[in-house]
């Protein structure tokens, strides 16, 4: 493209951009306008949703402070309460795995209270 042609394209692009900002459409995108991809007989629709998480805490008051302050950052309480009865050593191993393998940033000082809480769990029905 000639230098003149390039300048014309540049000016047009600039004006288009100006115009877009000047007449900004602020309506929320409706579901119908939401982005889709169609090719070879298949249409895929973009998805936007929310995962539920009621933010349950480990019960037990202050004895649950360490576990609530550290563990809920990554996962909810559910799987802890479905575990079979485990020994203190087995729960210690789980906490070690969270820190060493999954890099949970648990301070050394918090570990005993967390293991105490887990070791004292009574297995439910």
């Amino acid at each position: 493209m000639s230098p003149t042609g390039k300048r014309i394209v540049g000016i047009c692009t600039f004006l288009l951009a100006l115009g877009a900002f000047a007449g900004l459409d602020t309506r929320p995108i409706s579901a119908a306008e939401k982005s889709t991809v169609t090719a070879s007989g298949v249409t895929l629709h973009s998805v936007s949703t929310k995962f539920p998480d009621p933010g349950r805490l480990f019960p037990g008051g202050s004895s649950a402070d360490a576990i609530n302050n550290n563990c809920l950052a990554c996962h909810s309480t559910g799987m802890v309460f479905t575990q079979p009865k485990m020994s203190r050593a087995e729960w210690q191993a789980e906490v070690n795995k969270m820190r060493n393998t999954y890099k949970a940033p648990v301070a050394d000082a918090d570990v005993p209270a967390i293991v105490d809480y887990l070791a004292n769990l009574t297995v439910g029905k």
Partner: peptide, 22 residues
């Protein structure tokens, strides 16, 4: 046990499902 699980209908695009963890 524990053997009981909540049945949840709260997850998007899912009907009633057995809740192991949210």
């Amino acid at each position: 046990g524990p053997s009981q699980r909540a049945l949840t209908g709260a997850f998007p695009q899912k009907g009633p499902m057995i809740l192991q963890r949210s």
